[in-house]
Design a protein around this nucleic acid. Structure first.
Length: 233
DNA sequence: GCAAAGATTTGCT
DNA sequence: GCAAATCTTTGCC
């Protein structure tokens, strides 16, 4: 039998419910970004000691079309961004600044290069696993303690907390059996208060792309990225 | 083949 | 507020 106590005292992992409908992601990419906000990111257990993790997506950014000079698709199709040109619901993960990974969900019609960056997730369950993954990843230079709400409060931190890297690219996040997948919003949860701002870290793209309000966030979440002072939207 | 830049995060000045 | 850490991808010679 199983260790009687750990399973009894551990809170139930709320990873239930249907996966996010692919149709919500395959039409307009801004609508897809809006649909992703409030949806849940699930990562299955990687082994017996590290259980599954679940979090609510509270911040996203849309990258739409080859004309968007902030998008990886601005170079046309390459080995790295190939999946952006494919069907919606597929994961696109890449290494940024040589040390962090970023998770995107491919959006828009098949053949139309677009993706939505998952910038921040509010932990719901499996929080100890998230903390353990960040320790296991030997998160560099981190010395101050991290609160639960800040475990995945940035695009690089989402991948650290959920143990994701570019090997995830190509995974179908709308597949209910996938090790990493998207769930529709918890029907019991209140819908996010959506605020739109310009995207972060893309000044190089110039106007009008740098000013497009394609970053969407839940203004009531404590897990939105950035310093507390700048988290108002 | 080589140089430059980057959808980040953190600690220190 | 600034710069370091770190390495893949992309562009250009």
């Amino acid at each position: 039998m199983r260790s009687r106590r750990s399973s009894a005292t551990r809170p139930a992992i709320d990873a239930s419910g249907p996966v996010l409908d692919r149709g919500r992601l395959s039409a307009d990419s801004l609508a897809a970004a809006r649909a992703l906000l409030g949806s849940r990111l699930v990562r299955a257990a990687d082994d017996e000691m590290l259980g599954p993790s679940v979090g609510r997506i509270v911040e996203v950014e849309a990258y739409i079309g080859a004309a968007d000079l902030a998008s990886h698709a601005r170079f046309g199709q390459t080995d790295r961004n190939r999946v952006m040109f494919g069907p919606a619901g597929i994961a696109y993960a890449y290494l940024v600044y040589g040390m962090y990974h970023c998770l995107n969900v491919v959006t828009g019609p098949d053949g139309d290069p677009a993706a939505v960056l998952i910038r921040a997730v509010e932990p719901i369950a499996g929080i100890e696993a998230m903390r353990a993954r960040r320790v296991a990843a030997r998160h560099p230079r981190r010395r101050t303690p991290v609160t639960d709400a800040r475990l995945a409060s940035g695009p690089g931190l989402v991948c650290l907390a959920f143990g994701l890297d570019r090997s995830l690219t190509g995974t179908d996040l709308c597949d209910p059996t996938a090790p990493v997948r998207l769930l529709a919003p918890d029907p019991a949860a209140s819908p996010p208060r959506v605020v739109a701002t310009p995207r972060i870290g893309i000044a190089y793209a110039g106007e009008p792309w740098a000013s497009r309000p394609w970053r969407l966030l839940d203004a009531d979440s404590p897990s939105v990225s950035g310093p507390a002072r700048l988290r108002r939207g």
